[in-house]
Amino acid sequence: MLNQQETVMNKQKRFKIQGPCAYEFDSGNTGSWRIERPQVDFETCVKCGTCATYCPANVITIEKDKEICVDIMWDYCKGCGICANECPKQCITMVEERCGK
């Protein structure tokens, strides 16, 4: 591991770093973990943002002016169900995730 990383680090003039060093900011496809997915009833949603505050993966965006007012990044949502449990209007339901859909 040390060798592989030294090759990259040695090219840098300003920083001389010894030892293994991570330099690629990347993200896993944790959306594939999902067994259930949060389904939002956009009609009853009051756009309070509680779901977004507590989502551990930080994948919820509140879009006040859009029809899909609670936008979820499906590549990363782990399906934990915290958003559904905390929504004060109970307008999020966890539904079974099906392959191919």
Partner: peptide, 12 residues
């Protein structure tokens, strides 16, 4: 922080 990290689902 990256969105897809390997913490368990529901990790505090």
């Amino acid at each position: 922080i990256a969105h897809g990290v390997s913490a368990c689902a529901g990790c505090g």
